[in-house]
């Protein structure tokens, strides 16, 4: 565990906490894409299959449980909570996220470390996570005013994988045979998708104006 990896995990955890705070405090999920949340739940469920078989560390197990439970709780909230579900922008959140699932599955069947259920599911979760933010970014472009918590949520979500890339660079130079080209490429694509968001987030912060993504 190096400092970049820890910073990445804490940033990721913080993004989830910000989203939970937004939904709990405002009892609203306006501006949040349910499709992105469903994709993240699928990412965690397919990535952490080893939760019950491999024990790596208490930290690892606890964080996996936190990510799985929080993503499922958010999906439940947006689908079934009597108050929150009514604030979901159903007609704005129209990204066809099934294509992202299908594409990631095809990629995982083609490119994986070993052709086993667990490795194909793991590769699937890596590819899916890289594109899971797309419905959320499209929704942000459509919803004119992005509230602060939503903007912070997306910002920390994008920042966490950037820390992971630093972690992979660090591990590459400090450990032998540490070559993970699958998360490398997917991580670069994932962080790249946030590039324009980061730019407009920086502008809104610099000019102290509301965050607005151009349509």
């Amino acid at each position: 565990m190096n400092v970049f990896r820890f910073a990445g995990d804490m940033t990721h955890l913080f993004s989830v906490l910000v989203l939970l705070l937004k939904i709990y405090a405002t009892k609203s999920c306006s501006g949040i894409s349910l499709k992105t949340q469903e994709l993240y739940a699928l990412v965690f469920l397919t990535r952490y299959l080893d939760l019950l078989t491999d024990f790596i560390s208490l930290y690892n197990t606890v964080m996996k449980l936190v990510f799985i439970s929080s993503s499922l709780a958010i999906v439940w909230c947006m689908r079934a909570h009597p108050v929150v579900r009514r604030t979901y922008d159903k007609d704005q959140d129209t990204f066809r996220h099934y294509t992202l699932v299908a594409g990631s599955l095809v990629l995982a069947l083609l490119f994986h470390d070993r052709f086993t259920i667990r490795e194909v599911c793991w590769a699937f979760s890596i590819y899916l996570e890289a594109v899971a933010i797309l419905p959320q970014l499209v929704l942000l472009q459509r919803s004119r005013n992005v509230d602060n918590l939503t903007g912070q949520y997306v910002f920390f979500l994008g920042a966490y994988r950037a820390f992971y890339i630093l972690n992979w660079i660090y591990r590459y130079f400090t450990e032998q045979h540490f070559s993970r080209w699958i998360p490398w490429i997917a991580g670069l694509v994932q962080t790249g998708l946030y590039a324009d968001f980061f730019y407009y987030y920086y502008l809104s912060w610099k000019n102290n104006v509301k965050l607005q993504l151009p349509a």
Partner: peptide
């Protein structure tokens, strides 16, 4: 079964 094989990251 080197450590690198087990996915030790989140």
């Amino acid at each position: 079964f080197s450590k690198g094989e087990v996915h030790d990251e989140l």
